[in-house]
Simulated assay, not measured.
Amino acid sequence: MIPVALPSIESLLLLFASMGAGVCLLIWLLRLLLSRRARSRFAARPVLGVVLMLVLALAASFYLSFQYQVWQIDREFARRDAARRVTLAQAQTLGGVLMPAGARLTLAKEGELETFTEALFDPPAPAFGLRVSRIERYLHTDYDSKTYEELRRYPHTIHLWGEGPQQVEGWLCDTSQKLRLRVEDEGTRPEFAECVLAGGNAIEGGVGRWPAGTELLRMGGGVVYTDGHREPVNWMVRVRDPLGLPLAGLTLGRPTVQLDENRQLLAVSDAELACPLTLGEMRYPAGTQVKTAGYPLRQRFPSQSWVFSPVAPGQATRAGQSQPVNDGTSVVQTPDGAVLGVLSNEEAGVLRFARIIVNETDPQEPPVHCP
């Protein structure tokens, strides 16, 4: 956190008093200019009038000095801002990218091209295996712990924009939307981290394709729990399309899906049934919350088990039983329908988050619908 010195009350009062003195002096000079009577009164006591004017002028000088310094600072900021905007006259390599002539750069530090935070290309240029029209870099700065002198700057996050769908590590990403790369440390190669999928990405081991607009995240080191357990998750896919998606035998709305390195399904979370479902002896209404049995629930049940959690006012019913399964309770079932257990949401690891309403506007997304 950078400490900021706030002005004292005394300095603010002095500034307002100085401004008031300047206003009084201006009004007095205007009256002398426009009123013969005021000039006659001034001429009757010229020494006193001159002394009072000098006192007001001296008092107003503090405010004028303050405004002059503000003007100088604004002018210097404008000069620096203009100096940090550079158009390359000839092609050169910066930040590992061959910048073509005419590239427009915004620099973090005046005069140092390697500190560019934004680069614009027209037409798109090759960079990081893609054709991009814009690069945005977020720089990390290291300082000397004793002198606080700047030692070096290097990017820790890179955002790219291009034109239309492009292949990235076997995925078809929509580069008209932001694509993110991460840099683990200075000098290391940027790695793909996140993009928005274009249409045409097949679901491995399933039917259909991931909808356009789906968010794709690369999980560098997998998912690590607080007790040290690690899940071998390589990819996380967040579906935003409200149309139900056929996945692992169910039709799910807006699922978050974890995939391994071969893009095979590992887990599903934060999904809901897009269509009513009958599975074994259980019947669930549309809108029922769904996930796979995650860690540590898999220590009690098979890893491919489903966890169904009705959401009020919906209820799940069980064949041969009159008592429904209500909100707050979850049912664990195998993919073939065998009921393995009926647990509280807390036991099943099902979380419900409060919805925050701002300005009386409910941020709830439109409901999913059955295809």
Rank of each mutant, 00 (worst) to 15 (best):
R39S: 02
A316S: 02
R84N: 14
N345A: 03
V86H: 10
L340Y: 01
L56P: 11
G249M: 00
T214S: 00
M282N: 04
A348L: 12
R37W: 12
R298H: 15
A271I: 00
G228N: 05
A108K: 09
G228H: 06
R137P: 02
R84A: 13
S11V: 07
E194W: 07
G96V: 15
M282V: 04
Q258I: 09
S40A: 13
E76D: 13
I73C: 10
E360D: 13
L120V: 15
P155M: 01
G249S: 00
R152S: 02
G228E: 06
L120P: 14
L273R: 02
E261N: 05
Y284H: 06
P3N: 08
A21I: 01
N326D: 09
T226Y: 14
L259E: 08
G213M: 00
S40T: 09
R134A: 04
A319Y: 05
A198D: 01
A319T: 07
Q67P: 07
L179A: 01
E149F: 13
L30M: 11
R318Y: 12
V311P: 03
D260T: 05
E186R: 09
E261L: 03
D227L: 08
R254H: 03
H369Y: 10
A348I: 13
A17T: 04
I158G: 09
P363Y: 07
E281W: 06
M1N: 06
C195E: 00
C24R: 15
P232Q: 05
T141V: 07
P46R: 12
S309H: 08
T329M: 08
G253H: 04
L107C: 03
Y225M: 08
I27Y: 10
F192Y: 03
Q90C: 12
L14A: 15
V97S: 14
P190T: 00
